[in-house]
Simulated scan of single mutants.
Amino acid sequence: MSGNSVPGNTTVTEALAVSGADAGAGKKRGPRNWRPLLLLLPAFAIVSLFFLAPLFDVALRSVTDPQPGLQNYEWLFTTQANIAVVTRTFSTAFIVTIVCLLLAYPYAYLMTVVSDRTRNMLQLFIMLPLWTSILVRTLAWMVLLQDTGPINGILMAWFGIGPVPLIRTTFGVALGMSQVLLPFMVLPLYSAMAKIDKRLLPAASNLGANPITAFFTVYLPLSRPGIFAGGVTVFILGLGFYIIPALLGSSKEIMISALIQQQISVFLMWGQGTALGMFLLICTILILVIVSKLNKGQSLFPGVDKK
């Protein structure tokens, strides 16, 4: 009898095949149990009631009020004033995103190199504004930016300049929005930077790279997930701001959110207001898709690995 056979003239390969088939037959799954999914029904009902149903109603009103058709979207894209509002909204949100990035990047980096006690203090400083009402902070900016306020007082006393128009301008709106949205840029950046090995920059220097080259070729690409996450968050939140543009801006600085409120509450044009809302929603979804593609399939949320 050869070494590759077993009693009954059955080869080892055949025996393994039979045993594998028996094991596969033993692992055959029975009918799927759908009962655990029933636990999700209450959550699905709540989401449908408070999110999907209003969203469907808004989408329906945008094409049926005051009559069925696309006249509301035609009004949105053919009215010069609307185009100016949309352009102003996106440009202001972009400016705020850049300002927040320039301020948050060194702050987040500092949080990664200091001691734990100092880091906790820096986190407290960046979180403290979130515990204050946005209305209170906006009213404080109104006091600071007015023509007779402290900022213009310092400019006039120290530099002989002023009064400089700071309030009721795009600058004032962008400044107030940047102060409110800065934490939403710092936290994702810190989450991404905390994962970067601090030995990489010295290693790049030892290989002949100067500090600037090492930063742009090593550190900056590794912090890109935090830049994308913070930038998307700040930009999208900036598109929907209402209180700050309304209080720090003027009729010349009106943004989409204020235009929606005007169309619905003042003119009672629900179709045009909901069309503006759907346009803003679609733009937000497109931004998320585009940034996800630019991020090469990585998660937009640092610390959350994409499966």
Rank of each mutant, 00 (worst) to 15 (best):
M1F: 10
S5A: 15
V6K: 08
G8V: 10
T10R: 07
V12F: 10
T13I: 09
E14M: 01
L16K: 13
S19I: 10
G20D: 05
A23D: 04
A25W: 06
G26M: 02
K28I: 12
R29M: 06
P31I: 12
P31E: 14
R32T: 03
N33W: 08
L39R: 09
L39A: 15
L40M: 11
L41H: 07
V47Q: 09
L49T: 07
F50N: 05
F51T: 10
A53C: 09
A59L: 09
D65Y: 05
Q67G: 12
Q71I: 12
N72G: 10
Y73P: 08
V85H: 03
R88P: 00
L101Q: 02
L102I: 06
P106D: 06
P106F: 00
Y107I: 13
A108C: 15
Y109A: 14
Y109C: 11
L110D: 00
M111V: 05
M111Q: 14
V113R: 14
S115K: 10
D116C: 14
M121P: 00
Q123A: 13
L130K: 15
V136Q: 12
R137M: 07
V143E: 01
L145N: 08
D147L: 02
D147Y: 07
N152C: 04
N152S: 03
L155Y: 00
M156C: 01
A157L: 12
F159V: 01
G162V: 00
P163I: 14
P163A: 08
L166K: 04
R168N: 11
R168D: 14
T170D: 13
T170G: 08
G172W: 03
A174P: 11
V180T: 11
V180E: 04
F184Y: 04
F184S: 03
F184Q: 11
F184E: 04
V186M: 13
V186Y: 07
L189D: 12
S191W: 00
S191F: 11
I196A: 15
K198A: 12
R199M: 07
L200F: 10
L201Q: 13
A204R: 10
S205K: 03
N206C: 03
L207A: 13
L207D: 15
G208L: 12
A209S: 15
T217C: 06
V218Y: 02
V218N: 01
P221M: 02
P225F: 01
I227K: 01
F228P: 11
G238C: 15
F241M: 08
Y242D: 05
P245A: 04
S250D: 02
S251L: 05
S251F: 01
E253R: 12
M255V: 11
I256L: 06
A258V: 06
I260Q: 00
I264C: 03
W270C: 10
G273T: 04
M278L: 12
L280F: 05
L280A: 06
I282K: 10
C283D: 07
I287R: 02
L288Y: 14
I290V: 13
I290F: 07
S292L: 02
K293P: 00
F301E: 00
D305A: 04
